[in-house]
């Protein structure tokens, strides 16, 4: 049985929308297990969201309209990005070519910007601190993202995520070429930074001074907080998907439009998400958090690796 491409297109968005809390729950579970704790249920994020949606929203007197709008703008952005990237299929869907990696990057950046503005508008000092930090480190990691994009563009002559994934699938030689390996590792570091994991941030802690991403939502409550939280789950999943389905393991995607293959693709995606979540949890547990001023070392490393990727393309053997 075949499904229409537009349905698959919607399914991509729906997958990210519905499964992102689950991925987050699984990662948290793995993490607590690695630390020898039982941990919360893997469905806990859904319960959290449900609880938050039921609660009332409290807003400070000084906040304006931006405070309300920010999370929703971000949420919308996170709904758009899955249309542009290969979440389920290895063939481009109708909207797949409407935006390239840079386009997706811009939309993600817009989301970050909206959350930051909302956080500033909350007038809470920690939220403002968090958004200022997030923007600073975002700006510092930006060169690395750019150079990864350059590498992809130079390898595939386009900068479409689908094309990059297809190139990697095309032959083993594409996988082991140094430029690809380097771009992949650089992007891994970018994801580490953007999802607010160790060594950049202790994402589960309640110590405000070390917070970056977490601090931004500190003034939110009720449904707005739920939207913001859900947005950050989706952001994490989107970044995982890009890391896996574009750079690292673009296999196991649906090659045909049949229901079975699409369902298979969803299952494989979850498995891959669990695997990568395991990796991140492992990193979380093996390293300590960097001092805030040392985060630049991580971004410098990401930048270094991504520049080396471009260099390797020209003078480092491909």
């Amino acid at each position: 049985m075949k499904i229409d491409v537009s349905v698959i297109q919607l399914l991509q968005v729906a997958t990210v929308l519905c499964l992102s809390p689950l991925v987050s729950g699984i990662v948290t579970k793995i993490e607590s297990r690695l630390q020898g704790r039982t941990g919360s249920r893997i469905l806990q994020p859904y319960y959290d969201l449900y609880k938050l949606f039921k609660k009332e929203t409290l807003v400070t007197q000084d906040s304006g309209i931006v405070f309300y709008l920010g999370p929703f703008v971000a949420f919308t952005c996170y709904l758009i990005v899955p249309m542009l990237i290969p979440v389920l299929t290895n063939f481009p869907l109708p909207l797949g070519y409407t935006g390239d990696i840079l386009g997706g990057g811009f939309i993600l950046a817009l989301a970050g910007f909206a959350v930051a503005l909302a956080a500033i508008d909350s007038k809470g000092p920690f939220a403002q601190l968090g958004s200022s930090r997030a923007m600073t480190f975002g700006a510092l990691i930006e060169p690395a993202i750019l150079f990864v994009t350059f590498t992809v563009a130079l390898i595939t002559s386009t900068d479409l995520p689908y094309a990059e994934a297809a190139t990697i699938r095309s032959s083993f030689t594409q996988v082991i070429r140094p430029s690809h390996l380097l771009a992949m590792s650089a992007f891994f570091l970018v994801v580490l930074n953007d999802t607010g994991r160790i060594p950049v941030e202790t994402h589960a802690s309640t110590i405000e001074f070390g917070m970056i991403d977490e601090a931004r939502t500190i003034e939110f409550s009720g449904p707005i907080f739920a939207i913001a939280k859900w947005g950050s789950f989706m952001k994490q999943m989107i970044l995982y998907v890009i890391l896996m389905n574009v750079f690292t393991v673009p296999w196991g995607l649906a090659g045909t439009k049949t229901v079975v293959s699409v369902l298979e693709a969803i299952a494989v995606l979850m498995l891959k998400a669990i695997a990568i979540g395991f990796l991140f949890a492992l990193i979380d547990n093996s390293f300590s958090k960097l001092r805030l001023f040392k985060v630049t070392e991580l971004t410098a490393t990401a930048f270094l690796i991504s520049v080396l990727a471009v260099l390797a393309l020209f003078v480092g053997g491909g």
């Binding site: 030689t173 082991i176 070429r177 140094p178 390996l181 380097l182 390797a312 480092g316 053997g317 491909g318």
Partner: peptide, 8 residues
């Protein structure tokens, strides 16, 4: 590819 990757 492999040897270059090792070199890098």
């Amino acid at each position: 590819g492999l040897s270059s990757a090792l070199a890098v």
